[in-house]
Amino acid sequence: MQKLRVNLWMNGTGEEAGNFYADALPGSSMEVESRYPTEGLLDFQQPLAGQALTVAVYVRGQRITLVNADPDFTPNPSISLMLNFDPADYEGSVDAARADLDATWAKLSAGGQELMELGEYPYSPRYGWVQDKYNVSWQLILSGPEGDPRPFVMPSLLFGGAAQNRAAEAVAHYKEVFGAREGMFVTYPEPTGPAAAGSVMFSDFALDDDWVTAMDSGVEQDFSFTPGVSLEWPCDGQEELDRVWDAMSAVPEAEQCGWLADKFGVSWQIVPANLGELMSRPNAFEHMMGMKKLVIDEF
């Protein structure tokens, strides 16, 4: 059962992008989950009055949330979404998995930009990395039939720029805070671009049933983590929320409405598991806008 969610910051295009992903991603659907109120908005939110606030995109049962907002932030490749085309999900047919991958690539590429050409690589017979027209990055990979099962959608953290060579430290930190389980862990045998010998070439880890990949960049990059892509973690009650918040928040000025930035720059939304019910209460949006860490009793 999915617990970790990926949130994508949309610059006023949330509903449009939701329809795009529902068409482009296999087995997908979308729904406008909430809308901005028409009163009580901050000045910068006024143009969004009545528009979609959150749009849920369901991809083979996994949820991605589009947060419709202003142009302050834009997704970048520091957090991409890896789509795992596993032949086991196609009755063992590599050809069927490959065909679905290619069809998805064609749709996501329309109006976008290739970051790594779709083709054969040492780690996969079919792989490509694309940034779509909404600046969201996707890695499409054809799994080997003998590979361990992984979810179809996996957020992928690329540690570069200010976070270069900190992937191993981050994985250890997430293991401590969330009880993450480590999966693959492959290191660079020698320096590769800005990646130091012994830094992480590829790793993945599980948060409950959800898998995340993490790696250090092997090429110089001038970007790193921003709120353009954030990770959402639901907590069962205020005590757990307080513990996770205190362990994760490292940038006080970034704290707002349940959002925080950790010591690596990754943005998280640490929220009550019953946030949907809380947001249905009268004036809940205004109450939330006045908080940094979310306090359940103040909704």
Rank of each mutant, 00 (worst) to 15 (best):
Phe285Glu: 02
Tyr36Glu: 08
Ala49Phe: 06
Met289Thr: 13
Ala24Asp: 01
Asn68Phe: 08
Asn11Lys: 14
Ala214His: 07
Leu4Glu: 06
Leu241Asn: 03
Leu41Gly: 04
Ser34Pro: 01
Gly218Phe: 09
Val136Pro: 01
Ala214Trp: 08
Pro77Thr: 03
Asp72Ile: 12
Phe225Pro: 00
Leu207Thr: 07
Pro87Cys: 09
Arg150Asp: 06
Pro155Gln: 10
Gln269Met: 09
Pro252Asp: 02
Tyr123Leu: 10
Pro194Gly: 04
Ala96Arg: 14
Phe202His: 13
His173Pro: 02
Val266Gly: 06
Pro194Leu: 04
Arg35Ser: 12
Ala106Trp: 02
Ser217Gln: 02
Asp86Arg: 07
Pro75Leu: 00
Ala96Met: 08
Phe152His: 07
Asp100Gly: 04
Val219Ile: 13
Gly111Ile: 00
Leu207Pro: 00
Met116Arg: 13
Trp259Arg: 05
Tyr188Gln: 05
Leu294Lys: 07
Gly161Phe: 03
Val6Tyr: 00
Val55Gln: 02
His287Tyr: 13
Phe264Gln: 08
Ala284Thr: 07
Arg63Tyr: 02
Ala49Met: 13
Gly50Arg: 12
Ala261Gln: 15
Thr213Tyr: 09
Pro37Arg: 10
Asp132Pro: 04
Ala250Pro: 07
Asp210Met: 04
Leu115Pro: 01
Thr74Cys: 07
Arg281Glu: 14
Val266Arg: 08
Ala49Gly: 13
Ala170Glu: 06
Met288Ala: 09
Asp236Arg: 15
Gln221Asp: 03
Asp222Glu: 12
Ala168Arg: 11
Phe178Met: 10
Asp246Val: 02
Ser249Leu: 10
Tyr134Phe: 15
Pro77Lys: 05
Arg35Ala: 09
Gly218Tyr: 12
Asn283Val: 03
Ser34Tyr: 01
Lys107Leu: 06
Asp210Val: 02
Pro26Gln: 07
Val186Pro: 00
Val171Glu: 03
Tyr134Gln: 02
Met215Asn: 10
Phe152Arg: 12
Asn135Val: 05
Met82Lys: 13
Lys292Asn: 13
Glu16Ser: 02
Ala247His: 01
Pro145Ser: 11
Val244Phe: 03
Leu207Gly: 03
Phe225Leu: 01
Glu169Gln: 14
Asn84Gln: 12
Phe223Gln: 00
Val251Gln: 14
Val219Gly: 02
Lys263Pro: 05
Trp138Glu: 00
Glu176Gln: 15
Glu182Phe: 08
Ala162Thr: 10
Thr187Gly: 00
Tyr21Val: 00
Ala52Thr: 10
Phe44Arg: 14
Val186Glu: 07
Asn274Ser: 07
Leu81Asp: 02
Leu81Ile: 14
Met248Arg: 01
Asn84Pro: 07
Glu286Ile: 09
Arg5Asp: 11
Glu91Leu: 11
Pro155Ser: 10
Gly179Val: 09
Val94Trp: 10
Met116Gly: 05
Pro191Tyr: 11
Gly193Trp: 06
Leu83Ala: 08
Met82Pro: 03
Asn274Tyr: 12
Asp43Glu: 15
Ala49Cys: 11
Val6Asp: 05
Phe264Thr: 04
Ala103Leu: 03
Ile270Ser: 01
Thr54Ser: 12
Asn274Glu: 09
Leu42Phe: 11
Ser93Cys: 08
Gly160Cys: 06
Tyr21Trp: 04
Phe85Thr: 09
